[in-house]
């Protein structure tokens, strides 16, 4: 998605990326970025929280007017879980001794399924 934003900027169209994967967007490099430190899935606000969605979308509009150079990142003030905000971070794509064997087995299974699909000519649907 950041590559698309760069292409539009090169053609003279101002853009804002709104997202939660800060490192991926900033490594690619975009003109304007509104970062919300949430689990991936709700980059424009929590489900059914209209006030938050309005605020985050409004910050993207503000950034269009106010950024004067590329790589301008604004972080929105919202916190996913003020009681325990590290829980979702640690849980997502967790790799530790408790699941290492299961992950290796899942990888083998997935590769076998993909090989079967390829052999049967299914593959990309």
């Amino acid at each position: 998605m950041s590559l698309v934003a760069r292409h539009l900027e090169e053609a003279g169209l101002p853009t804002v990326v709104m997202g939660s994967a800060r490192d991926i967007v900033e490594e690619c490099g975009v003109a304007r970025f509104v970062f919300t430190d949430f689990p991936l899935g709700n980059p424009t606000g929590k489900p059914d929280d209209v006030a938050m969605q309005t605020s985050i979308t409004g910050m993207a509009l503000d950034l269009l007017e106010r950024a004067w150079e590329p790589r301008t990142t604004v972080q929105t003030p919202f916190v996913w879980n003020s009681e325990n905000n590290d829980e979702w971070r640690q849980h997502f794509m967790k790799v530790d001794d408790s699941n290492r064997g299961a992950l290796a087995a899942a990888g083998d299974q997935r590769r076998a399924a993909q090989a079967d699909a390829k052999a049967e000519g299914r593959g990309r649907g």
């Binding site: 950041s2 590559l3 760069r6 539009l8 900027e9 090169e10 053609a11 003279g12 169209l13 101002p14 853009t15 994967a21 490192d23 991926i24 490594e27 690619c28 490099g29 975009v30 003109a31 991936l40 950024a67 004067w68 150079e69 590329p70 790589r71 997502f92 794509m93 790799v95 290492r100 992950l103 290796a104 899942a106 990888g107 083998d108 997935r110 590769r111």
Partner: peptide
Amino acid sequence: YIDKSRNYYGAQGYPQAYQWAYNQDVPFAP
């Protein structure tokens, strides 16, 4: 997510880490 996904897919036995886009220069349209 670059670190997490590299570790996660590595643990699933994918030998090659994904190559994420990286740019030094960034275009800007006012």
